[in-house]
Design a binder for these strands. Sequence first.
DNA 1: CTTTTTGAACTGACTGGTCAGTGCAAAAAC
DNA 2: GTTTTTGCACTGACCAGTCAGTTCAAAAAG
Lengths: 210, 210
Amino acid sequence: MESSSATAGVSTRREATRQKLYEAAVTLIAEQGFSATTVDEIAERAGVAKGTVYYNFASKSVLFEELLRHGVGLLTASLREAAEATARAGGGKVDALDAMIRAGLVFIDRYPAFTQLYVAELWRTNRAWQSTLMVVRQQAVAVVEGVLREGVENGEFSDEIDVPLTASALVGMVLVAALDWQSFQPERSLDDVHAALSRLLQGRVSGRRG
Amino acid sequence: MESSSATAGVSTRREATRQKLYEAAVTLIAEQGFSATTVDEIAERAGVAKGTVYYNFASKSVLFEELLRHGVGLLTASLREAAEATARAGGGKVDALDAMIRAGLVFIDRYPAFTQLYVAELWRTNRAWQSTLMVVRQQAVAVVEGVLREGVENGEFSDEIDVPLTASALVGMVLVAALDWQSFQPERSLDDVHAALSRLLQGRVSGRRG
DNA sequence: CTTTTTGAACTGACTGGTCAGTGCAAAAAC
DNA sequence: GTTTTTGCACTGACCAGTCAGTTCAAAAAG
């Protein structure tokens, strides 16, 4: 027992199998939901025997929980990186927010199924992975809240804003716009979508200009 | 015999039973998801026998579909009413948007379980009620899009805004902020939440003021 | 009025099928 | 030779949907 011996993300055989299972599970669960997706389906889609699923994960729920952790970890890292990059480039907090919106869009564009599944589970109660979800949600939202709070401190944002609520609203804006984009207008470019959201963020909607 | 003698030709008893089943189903499905919720549970929560569920609805899926139609109908009517009331009062399109945000919050405050369940299903594919969901979604979003479009026409909004995307983003803003409010800060008042979202809508976030 | 009939609404035990999870021997990979 | 995967038979719980039978209030008959 050892897989942690590989220094940097290099996959052992076991790690590769787990990755295949994540990918199979994420699309199936996004489409059908957790309960409607069978372990047999996941194994088949991953090209693996059912026994292998249970060799690698204690249960279906555990597979799902680790999938959640895995995915939100990627998102959080991406958001954090976007915020830090603008800071390094000397940008303000508005720029940081804008960069995080873009990072969010890129993430959703790359992992639409994961996003879908995450949204579907986020406000549920009475489910086994409830606590996992809370922890992981907080990690992601905290990045947005941090930028807002810093913006208030340095005077860039009004100190009357409600940090947690504004963070939720911003996340919702990006989330729903992106999912609708994927579902109903997939031909549009990311830049296009990003531009529309930037306009909204900066209150450039209710200015007459045409 | 002939209970249908009642004025509208609709049996009250039957309607009352259906209502009880909607109420039972909506909370259970919001908590657990459609597949994880059993018909036995729904019947028990509603205080009726399992057979009654099947006497009133062709199947579990049909019950769910009618529940969706029922709920989104309420929301759509509420949004439309909010928009029309501001128009009657001589308000502009920004006021209409603001009133619709409030109407959305009121709806979510009153029917949190329905909202939750709706969000969880909205972007799924390969489900039996997919087409029903598309239709009702469009009804609701169309109200927001209509106000935006009118605002562009009368010059109140920039004609550079992307109407469908902006509508999605606004819906997402309200949806996620409200669900997070319900889940994580239920003690806060609706006015409070409304004020925070108004501020965001009107771009009064990045104005230093404190 | 009283008795009988009607049928919509409801009941709950039952059925047939599904699925998470197990067990294990043999093969493959490393 | 150790770890991982395979294939597959098996089990026991669970569950959607069915159906023969019950209830009861209102209508019809007497």
